[in-house]
Amino acid sequence: MSVAATPAPAQASAAVATLKHARYIIGENPVTGVAFGIFVLLALAALIGPFIVPFDPLASDTAAALNSPSAKHWFGTDQLGRDIFSRVVVATRLDLGIAIFSVALVFALGGLSGVAAGYFGGWTDRVVGRLADTIMAFPLFVLAMGIVAALGNTVTNIVIATAIINFPLYARVARAEANIRRDAGFVQAARLCGNSEMRILLGHILPNIMPIMMVQMSLTMGYAILNAAGLSFIGLGVRPPTPEWGIMVAEGAAFIVSGEWWIAFFPGVTLMLAVFCFNLLGDGLRDIVDPQRRT
C-alpha cells in the first residue's frame, strides 16, 4: 500500500472520529467504561500480581486455616491456611494466559480458513465446513473433556482443546462475512483494478472483516476463560496446588455446605467478573464497530 496515497491527515481525522465515537458509546453506555476499568485491573494483576501480593500463594499455615475474611486476610484463608486473596490475584495470569493463547490460536486458524472458505468457495469451503460441522456435532464442553482426557492432562492441552471447540465459531463468522463480500461492488471493482485474488482477500476483504472478528475475539475470551475454569473444576488440566480460579472454586465446594463460603466465593466472583468484563467489552466494541447491530 502506498503511504502517500493515504495521507496522514485522513488517518488522523479518522482516528479522532473513532475516538469520539468511542467516547460517545462510553458516555451512552457507562457499563462499557466500567468493563474497561475491570479489564485494566485484570491486566495489572496478570502482569505484576505475583510481585505485589501480601502472601506466598502456596505457603500453607495450618494455624490460620479456614479463617473468614479479615483485615489481614482480605478474602480469608482456605483449609490449608493459604491466603485466598493472594491466590486469586496470582491465578489471573494463568487463567487469562490460557484464554489469550487459545483465542489467538483459533483466531489464526479459524479466522483465516473461514475467510478463505467464504471467498474461494468450492472445495476449500467444503473442507472447512465439514471440519466445523464435525466439531459442532459434539457438545463443545464435552468434546473439550474428551480431548484433554485423550491428549493428556496438561495446561497446553487445555489451550488446544479450547481453541478446537471455538474453531467453528470463528470459521463460520469469517466465512459468512467473506462470503457476503465476495461479489460486493467494491470487490468487483478491485478485480477491475488489476488486483490478484490473494491481494483482494488480504487487502480488501480481510480489513473489512477485522472489526467483526475483534468483537468475536472479545466475546470468546469470556467463553474461553469459562471453559478452562470448568475443565479445571472437574480436575482436568491445572493441578493443585497451582492457584487457578476453577480449582479454587472446586476446593471450596466441599466447604459450602458447612458455611465456609469465602473459599469458593472469591475465586468464583473474580472468574465471573473477568468473563463479564470481556462480554461487555465485546458488546461495547460491537457498538463502536457496527452501530446497526445493536441489540
Binding site: 470448568g230 473444576f233 472454586v249 455446605v257 463460603w261 462480554n279 461487555l280
Partner: peptide
C-alpha cells in the same frame, strides 16, 4: 442476558446451595 452468560455454572450452583441449603 449479559450477566447470565458470564456466570460460571458451577459457581451459580454453589451459590444457590449456600443460600437455599445453608
Amino acid at each position: 442476558a449479559t450477566a447470565g452468560v458470564s456466570l460460571p455454572v458451577f459457581f451459580t450452583g454453589l451459590l444457590l446451595v449456600y443460600v437455599f441449603y445453608f
